[in-house]
Design a protein around this nucleic acid. Sequence first.
RNA 1: GCGGCUGUGGUGAAAUUGGUAGACACGCUUGAUUUAGGUUCAAGUGCCUUUGGCGUGGGGGUUCAAGUCCCUCCAGCCGCACCA
Length: 850
Amino acid sequence: MAQYVAADVEQKWQGAWAAEDIFTATRSPDKPKYYVLEMFPYPSGRIHMGHVRNYTMGDVIARYKIATGHAVLHPMGWDAFGMPAENAAMAIGGHPKDWTYSNIDDMRAQMKPLGLSIDWSREFATCDPEYYGQQQALFLDFLEKGLVYRKNAVVNWDPVDMTVLANEQVIDGKGWRSGAEVERRELTQWFFKISDFSEELLTALDQLDNWPAKVRLMQENWIGKSRGIEVPFNRMDGGDPIICYSTRPDTMRGATFLAISPEHPVSRTLAEDRPELAAFIAETRKMDTTEAAMEKAEKKGIDTGLKVRHPVYPDRELPVWVGNFVLMEYGTGAVYGCPAHDQRDLDFAKKYGLDVTHAFFMPGEEVEVTDTALVPPKTEKVAYVEHFAGIGECSSLEGIDASIDYFEAHDLGRGQVKYRLRDWGLSRQRYWGCPIPIVYCDTCGVVPEKKENLPIELPYDEGNKPIDFSQPGNPLDRHSTWRNCECPSCGGPARRETDTMDTFVDSSWYYARFTAPRAETPTVAEDASYWMNVDQYIGGIEHAILHLLYSRFFARAMHICGHLPKSATEPFDALFTQGMVTHEIYQTRDAAGRPVYHLPEDVVDGKLADGTEVEIVPSAKMSKSKKNVVDPVNIVAAYGADTARWFVLSDSPPERDVEWTASGAEAAFKHLARVHRIVSDIATSDLPDVPEADLALLRDMHKTIHEVTGGVESFGFNAAIAKLYGFTNTLAKSKAGSGAKREAASALAQLMAPMTPHLAEELWYMLGQEDFVTTANWPVADPNMLIDDTVTLPIQINGKRRAEIAVPKDMDKSEVEKAALAHDAVLRSLDGAVPKKVIVVPGRIVNVVV
RNA sequence: GCGGCUGUGGUGAAAUUGGUAGACACGCUUGAUUUAGGUUCAAGUGCCUUUGGCGUGGGGGUUCAAGUCCCUCCAGCCGCACCA
């Protein structure tokens, strides 16, 4: 009997698939199409178990769709621009381009042995000039349609990476990659007009039924729609009114002061001849913006001396303060303070001795606030005090509506919808990114590059040698020749934009490029309309906002420019966010008591090679720093790709984290070897039919087909695998004849094929099949075989299980009742009592109520 | 603070519409075979004071019947946040 040697089996079938080109995606008029995509990797140089899990899930779907008669597009590429390449060049010398392409070669070589059903002919890297040249073309089209613009703005400056960051890339006041405290700087930058799409990006979320609710909610919160009112407050000195934004106009009676941002034009103007104000503004600008610091930071202010008139109660004059807590970026940069109904305003008012005036009380409890503000409840009714809109006791939601109506009717302000989402700043002061195709000319100003000059390629050399990356900053900016060019408009001497695009731009449209990866235009209409949308997108939850929101914007912008059909404006029909691969952490302590980490492969039975016992820290995401990593390359070498694939799918639901354990991997391998043994035994044996055993085996086969199919279609891979284990046990123990066993073994091979494709091909081959199991038609369960002729019903007495009874599947309810009541155990339990009621749920349960 | 998710054996977990809780796997126990051992095969494994009782984070409720529905509390995780 042949032994299961994974390496031989896997090499053999990968070779056979490649020879027949079976994964090349081809448009086919007579087949439904299916586009499955996993978030493409950054070419760090090594694949990790998270990649294996991600791509295996996609591969299961892709192979299942091939077997169910679809034209499948399952591509792979590289998100190849970005800082690590420049950092590597800085740290170890060399060139980002060489580093990146060599990493891609390494990773491809690690990925191919996994046996993924990828159409490698469509592979590209975002740093290929053929790709980013088309991205530059998109930029020019966006510019023409007003979807990109240039403005002077206060931006997030990362002092370590020496570049600007988008708001989305600042986490807790720190750069998302460098972790450095972000500073605020004023620079001229390019922006995508994503804010034009706020409402659409928000409302379209409702249509994304096959996205995780969590991701939709996160995007909804990020877009941050709020409804309120803009109210001008007239200045007593006759200057331009100060416009405040509020979502609670019903509390306007309680307004006792105005607070404006230090960045507000009024603050700036006043600061010109008020040194103490200028100092205050400078101080707030330096302020630590981390969350923890914000929480602790004192709410500080400074009285400007200005007064404004209350819009509704003109006899009241309100002082104007500059407050360090007022953000210029949100609303109008000015708010009115309502101490009675807002805790922050109350704290501020108490600190600086400002008035507290109620707009409402809780009905029947007229208690003035002292230390705790009376925040308007959402649903409960409140009693408004002599309210300008004429309302008395009502919910604050009604109060808001009435107040907005009042302001609009009296021309005192207007209802206003605001979004938190701001435009996407895309300029980065980096080398290793897509150059922005813009030229600055002294005569013509800002001029778009001509499309025929694209791609504007990154320079590899400076002078005769490769660019020097040893000093920080942007090498394009200090390059001696690259930035000099000819003005596309007047032909005179001009300078190139030296900023490159945020790498999130690269990943915002790669899914569309895969539909026509070699085209001379960003997309090709017939390919895009055939393959788009992505039917199933799979990746990590960490991209819930940035990448997915940007992609949704890009698809819309590409549609406006004619690069995608209207139907592709939501590019991902279904999204699945998979969990991480975790592992226990093994550590010892150094002399100072600091943890020293050890690789799992160096720990045997909780001990190091020298016998030292290790401390075991509970499972966490695999990370190099904690050394709790298992290299897929080693696993594939030891057990084969099928074992790695089977294991990452088997133990946990795909959306949850899965813990990699050596014993689990070992068990997966043993199981595959067992299947190989069982099937090879069946293939070579010749036993006569055994009608009853044959039927029982085939019934379980059909149930297995049914459950595995359902599992694969609903991301229930772990449950599907559990059923396959069960079916393997049934098959191993079955007394059926060889005919039925071969049929069952063939089905087993087919059902395992999406998960363990190499072994499945081998089983299929051993069973004498001549085609590929990969392309064979997916088995279909016979509904008649899914229900047994007799069913075992539990009998409950008052909801407690007391007995079981076997009855024919279509036995009449009253017959079942009779049989149940005649059961020994039931009679014993009843002990002569007369049942009040008997509930029979056909095929499920019998409950006797006494 | 706001919003959301999760809680089931020693472990990972399973359980269409409320209908036999713990499938499947790890681990563990016992036995058989072979062996130096791993391997393979067979049997067992929620808990307890075991003719029975208890059991899906705690408490309460709806129901003939609750892991599943409702209320409430607790714990853990995630997202957002000086957002007016």
